[in-house]
Design a protein around this nucleic acid. Structure first.
Length: 853
RNA sequence: GCGGGUGUGGCGAAAUUGGUAGACGCGCCAGAUUUAGGUUCUGGUGUCCAUCGGACGUGGGGGUUCAAGUCCCUUCACCCGCACCA
C-alpha cells in the first residue's frame, strides 16, 4: 500500500539538506566550463508575484540542467532595493525606507526559498547597502575623470506640488501622476552619462548578440536610431545669419519648397520676435498636448517669418517658417521642406499653399502624381539640374560631394539616442558624490571620504527631497579649498544599480573594488557575458541598453575586460488570468467566484451571477491575481514549477488556470505513488527482449529530446517528453532480467531528468531507490546513438499525394523493396484504381508516394 | 504612420524545417473500483457523412511541388513596440 505523498514535509526536508550541504555555492574552477545563469533581480516590494515564479523557475531549470551537464554554474540572487515605493511607504505610513526595504527583502527571500531554487545565497546583496553603492560612487568619479560623466543644464518635468522632477513616464496628460498638478518645464543642472559616445558601438555590437531575441535587438536598434545624411548651411537673405539644416534626403534638394525651424530654435526669436501673431503662435504650440492622442491629431501649423533662405546649390530662395512639428532636440532643429517626398511637409505645403514639385519619379508608373500624397519610394531624379536621371543613392552622394566641395555642408551621422540623465531629486537612491563650492565649482568627493552614505535621520514631512531639508547632511567643506560648501543632494537614477550588478555577483563582498578583475574574467570573460539572462521584455530598451553601455564604460575605465554584459537573453511572456466581474461590472477576485449547482458562475457570498472576462495580465486593479505563497503552500513548489513550465512556450503568455495547477499537482502525486513502490530486481544487460529494447529506445530518445528542448528553451516540450516517457515506463511489465535492466535504467533516467523541473520529488525518489548521494550532484544521462535506431519502421504511403495506407519496412529497405511492399498493399491498389505507375518516390524513414495517372 | 510578431481541435499547444497534422496536457464522453469524493484506473475524443470506408481540414484566396502548417504571391484579423526623428 503506497503512502500519500507528503509534499510539505518532503520539500522542506530536501531544501534543508541542500542548505546544510551548501550544494549551490560555487567558486571559480578553471577545470570546469563555467555557466552563468541569472534572472532579473526583483524589486523588494514585499511579496513575490507569479511573474517572479515564472522567471525564477525558468532560470532554475537552466541552472540545474547545466550543473548536471558538468558546468560550474553560477546562479545568484540579489535585490534591486532603491526606488520610489520605499519613499511612498515612508510618506504614507511613516516607515523608514531602509527598514521597509529590509523587511520586504526578508519576507521575499523566504518566499523565493520555498520555490527550491538552486541559488548561491552567499552572493546575495541589496543595492541600497553602502557596501554596494560605494562602488557606484567610485565608478562615477572615474567616469567623470574620463569625460563619460558630465553636468549640464537641461529641461526637466517639474512637479510644483511635490517639488520634484518627474520621469516622462510619470507625466500623464501634462500633469503629475501623484499630485495631478500641471507639470512645469524647468531648467535644472543635471548629471549625465555620455551614452551617445557609445551609440555606434552599442549599435554594431548588436550583431554579435545572436542569442538575444531579434525583437529586442530591433527595439534597441530603433532606439539608437542611427541615420546618415547631410548637414548643410543656408543663408538668410537680407540678414547676416545662417541656418544649419540636417537631412537624410539630400537628393531631394531641388524639391525644397520652404525652410522650417523649431519653435524653440535659437534663431526663432531673432527672426520672428515682435512680429504680428508670433506670440499667439508660440502660445498655440505650447498649448499642444504631449499625449499620444494629441500628437496624432495635432495639425501642422507654421508662422511665416517673412524671411527667405537660400543654398548655393539650389540657386533660389524659399520662405522661412517656424513650425510646430519641428523638434529642437533632433538634428539641428531645422529642416528644409520637400512636400513631394515627405508627408509632413506635404500636409504643411497644402495648408500654406506652397508648391509641391516632384523631384523623384518612379519608373514605369503612368499616372504619377504627388498632389494627394508624398512619394517616398525609389525612382529617378527629375527637375533637379545636374541630378536629373540619377537614382536616389547616387544623387544623395552627389549633393553631399558638392556641398563638401564648396564647404557649405558635410555628410554626417545622427542618432536618436540621447545622453542618460542620472540625477533624481530623491532620497532613496545612491548619493551623487559631489560637493559644490562657490569658488571651485563641482568638486568630486575625495576617495578617503567615500562612500557618501545616506543619512538615516530624515523627515518626509515636507514635500520634496529629504536630503535637501536635512539640517546638517549637505553641509560640507570644499575638498579643494577647504571653504564651506554644499553636497549634491540628488541621487542616481535607480537604473544605475541594475546596470552593473552582474559583475557584483562575481565578487559580492569585495570592499575595495566593484569586482576583482580575475573573478570577473572567469565568470564574464571578454567575449562572453552572462550565459543566460532571463527577464521580462519590458526592459528591452532601458535596462538592457544601460547595462550594455555601463559595461563598456567600466571596460574603458579599466574595471573589467568585458564588452557585453549578457551573451544570452531570454524574454519571458506574461502570466495572465481570467477576470471576473459582478452584476454591477465591478472586478472581483477569482476566489470570490464559484460555480453553483446549476453550473453557473456566481459570487461566493451574494450568490449573484458573475461574468467571466478575458484572460489578461494579472494586475491588482483587475483583481485577477494569484498569490504565489498560497499556491506554494497548497500545492508545493514542484507542482507550481511543473505547471508554469507546461503547455505554454516560455516566450508566450501563460494563462494561469485552476485546472492546470491541479493537473500538475496530480502528476506530482502520481509519479510519487507509482515510482515509490516499484520494486527493482537485479538486471542483466546481455539478454534483452524486444520490449526491453523498445523501452531502452524510449529512454535514450527521451534523453536526447529533453536535453535539446531545455537547451532551446522549449520547456513545454521538455515537460511533454517527460510525461510521454513516464507513460511509457509505467506501462512496462518486466518479465526477465533483461527487462529489469531496462526498467531500472528508465526509472533512474526519468528521476534525474525531472530534477530541473521537480527537484524535491526527484531527490525523494532518488533516495528511495537507495542512493546515498544527493541527486542534485548527479550527472545528466548521456544517450547512445545506436540505441535510437529501429529494425523496422512504419511509414505512410501516399497515392498522388494523398495518404492511403501505411507500411512497415526493414530499416535498411531500398527503393525496390519499398516499392514492392507498397504496391502489394490492398488499399494502395484500390487507390491506384487500375491506373499505371508513373513515378515512385521513396524517402527513407519518412514517406512513400505512388504517382499514377 | 513606421517597425516587429501571431493566426493549427472545445482550450494551451506539438510537428525531426518540404515528407503519416494534432505529440503532451487541460476539458469533455463512456466504463471500472471506491462510493465520503472535485479520488484513482481503463478506453475514447479534429469536423462531416457512414456499413466496409470516404470526404474535408492548419485565418481567406491563388501559386510552386510527386508532396505545403512549413516555400512564393495576395488578402484579412488580432497583439506588441516606437511615434511629427527631417
Amino acid at each position: 500500500m503506497s503512502e500519500r505523498y507528503n509534499i510539505k514535509e518532503t520539500e522542506s526536508r530536501w531544501r534543508q539538506k541542500w542548505t546544510e550541504n551548501d550544494v549551490f555555492a560555487v567558486a571559480e574552477d578553471t577545470a570546469k566550463p563555467k555557466y552563468y545563469v541569472m534572472e532579473m533581480f526583483p524589486y523588494p516590494s514585499g511579496r513575490i508575484h507569479v511573474g517572479h515564479v515564472r522567471n525564477y523557475t525558468l532560470g532554475d531549470v537552466v541552472a540545474r540542467y547545466r550543473k548536471a551537464k558538468g558546468f560550474n554554474v553560477l546562479h545568484p540572487m540579489g535585490w534591486d532595493a532603491f526606488g520610489l515605493p520605499a519613499e511612498n511607504a515612508a510618506i504614507e505610513r511613516g516607515e523608514h525606507p531602509k527598514k521597509w526595504t529590509h523587511e520586504n527583502i526578508a519576507s521575499m527571500k523566504t518566499q523565493l526559498q520555498s520555490m527550491g531554487l538552486s541559488i548561491d545565497w552567499s552572493r546575495e546583496f541589496a543595492t541600497c547597502d553602502p557596501e554596494y553603492y560605494a562602488h557606484e560612487q567610485r565608478m562615477f568619479l572615474k567616469f567623470l575623470e574620463k569625460g563619460i560623466a558630465y553636468r549640464k543644464e537641461s529641461v526637466v518635468n517639474w512637479d510644483p506640488v511635490d517639488n520634484t522632477v518627474l520621469a516622462n513616464e510619470q507625466v500623464i496628460d501634462g500633469c503629475g501622476w501623484r499630485t495631478g498638478a500641471p507639470v512645469e518645464r524647468r531648467k535644472l543642472n543635471q548629471w549625465f552619462l555620455k551614452i551617445t559616445d557609445y551609440a555606434e558601438e552599442l549599435l554594431s555590437d548588436l550583431d554579435g548578440l545572436d542569442r538575444w531575441p531579434n525583437k529586442v535587438r530591433i527595439m534597441q536598434e530603433n532606439w539608437i536610431g542611427k541615420s546618415v545624411g547631410l548637414q548643410f548651411t543656408w543663408d538668410i537673405v537680407g540678414a547676416d545669419d545662417k541656418i544649419e539644416v540636417y537631412t537624410t534626403r539630400p537628393d531631394t534638394l531641388f524639391g525644397a519648397s520652404f525652410l522650417a525651424l523649431a519653435p524653440d530654435h535659437p534663431m526663432t526669436q531673432k527672426l520672428a520676435a515682435g512680429k504680428e501673431g508670433f506670440d499667439a503662435f508660440i502660445a498655440e504650440c505650447q498649448a499642444q498636448g504631449t499625449s499620444e492622442a494629441a500628437i496624432e491629431k495635432a495639425e501642422k501649423i507654421g508662422f511665416d517669418t517673412g524671411y527667405t533662405a537660400t543654398h548655393p546649390l539650389l540657386g533660389r530662395d524659399v520662405p522661412v517658417y517656424i513650425a510646430n512639428f519641428i523638434l529642437m532636440d533632433y538634428g539641428t532643429g531645422a529642416v528644409f521642406g520637400v512636400p513631394a517626398h515627405d508627408q509632413r511637409d506635404h500636409d504643411f505645403a497644402k495648408k500654406y499653399n506652397r508648391p509641391i514639385p516632384p523631384v523623384v519619379v518612379p519608373e514605369n508608373v503612368a499616372d504619377f502624381s504627388v498632389e494627394d500624397a508624398a512619394y517616398s519610394g525609389e525612382g529617378v531624379l527629375a527637375n533637379s539640374q545636374f541630378l536629373n536621371g540619377m537614382d536616389v543613392d547616387s544623387a544623395k552622394a552627389e549633393v553631399i560631394k558638392r556641398c563638401e566641395a564648396d564647404k557649405t555642408g558635410f555628410g554626417t551621422t545622427q542618432y536618436r539616442l540621447r545622453d542618460w540623465g542620472v540625477s533624481r531629486q530623491r532620497y532613496w537612491g545612491c548619493p551623487i558624490p559631489i560637493i559644490y563650492c562657490d569658488d571651485c565649482g563641482a568638486v568630486p568627493v575625495p576617495e578617503d571620504q567615500l562612500p557618501v552614505e545616506l543619512p538615516d535621520d530624515i523627515s518626509f514631512e515636507k514635500p520634496g527631497n529629504p536630503l535637501d531639508h536635512h539640517p546638517t547632511w549637505k553641509n560640507s567643506e570644499c575638498p579643494a579649498c577647504g571653504k564651506a560648501a554644499k553636497r549634491e543632494t540628488d541621487t542616481f537614477d535607480t537604473f544605475f544599480e541594475s546596470s552593473w550588478y552582474q559583475f557584483r555577483y562575481c565578487d559580492a563582498h569585495n570592499d575595495k573594488l566593484p569586482v576583482d578583475k580575475s573573478k570577473a574574467d572567469y565568470w564574464l570573460p571578454k567575449d562572453g557575458g552572462v550565459d543566460q539572462y532571463i527577464g521580462g521584455v519590458e526592459h528591452a530598451v532601458l535596462h538592457l541598453l544601460y547595462a550594455r553601455f555601463f559595461t563598456k564604460a567600466m571596460r574603458d575605465c579599466g574595471f573589467v575586460n568585458s564588452n557585453e554584459p549578457f551573451s544570452g537573453l531570454f524574454t519571458q511572456g506574461m502570466v495572465t488570468h481570467e477576470t471576473f466581474t459582478d452584476e454591477n461590472g465591478k472586478w472581483i477576485f477569482p476566489t470570490d467566484a464559484v460555480k453553483n449547482q446549476a453550473g453557473d458562475w456566481v459570487h461566493v457570498e451574494t450568490g449573484q451571477p458573475v461574468t467571466i472576462g478575458a484572460s489578461i495580465k494579472m494586475s491588482k486593479s483587475k483583481k485577477n491575481v494569484i498569490d504565489p505563497e498560497e499556491i506554494l503552500e497548497m500545492y508545493g513548489a514542484d507542482a507550481a514549477r511543473l505547471f508554469i513550465l507546461s503547455d505554454s512556450p516560455p516566450e508566450r503568455d501563460l494563462e494561469w488556470t485552476e485546472s492546470g495547477i491541479d493537473g500538475a499537482w496530480r502528476f506530482v502525486n502520481k509519479v510519487y505513488t507509482t515510482l515509490s513502490v516499484i520494486e527493482l530486481r537485479d538486471g542483466d544487460e546481455s539478454a534483452l527482449s524486444d520490449q526491453a529494447k523498445d523501452l531502452r529506445r524510449l529512454t535514450h530518445k527521451t534523453i536526447k529530446n529533453v536535453g535539446e528542448a531545455i537547451e532551446a528553451f522549449a520547456m513545454n516540450k521538455a515537460v511533454a517528453f517527460l510525461r510521454e516517457f513516464y507513460n511509457g515506463l509505467t506501462g512496462f511489465k518486466p518479465v526477465d532480467a533483461g527487462d529489469q535492466f531496462a526498467l531500472r535504467e528508465a526509472i533512474e533516467t526519468f528521476i534525474v531528468m525531472i530534477n530541473p523541473v521537480m527537484p524535491h520529488l526527484a531527490e525523494e525518489l532518488w533516495s528511495l531507490l537507495g542512493h546515498e548521494t544527493m541527486l542534485v550532484n548527479q550527472e545528466w544521462p548521456k544517450y547512445q546513438e545506436e540505441l535510437l535506431a529501429t529494425d523496422t519502421m512504419t511509414i505512410g504511403v501516399q497515392v498522388n499525394g494523398k495518404l492511403r495506407a501505411s507500411i512497415t519496412l526493414p530499416a535498411d529497405a531500398d527503393q525496390k523493396i519499398a516499392q514492392d511492399v507498397a504496391l502489394a498493399e490492398e488499399k494502395v491498389q484500390r487507390a491506384m484504381d487500375g491506373k499505371s505507375l508513373r513515378k515512385f518516390i521513396y524517402v527513407p524513414g519518412r514517406i512513400v508516394n505512388v504517382v499514377v495517372g
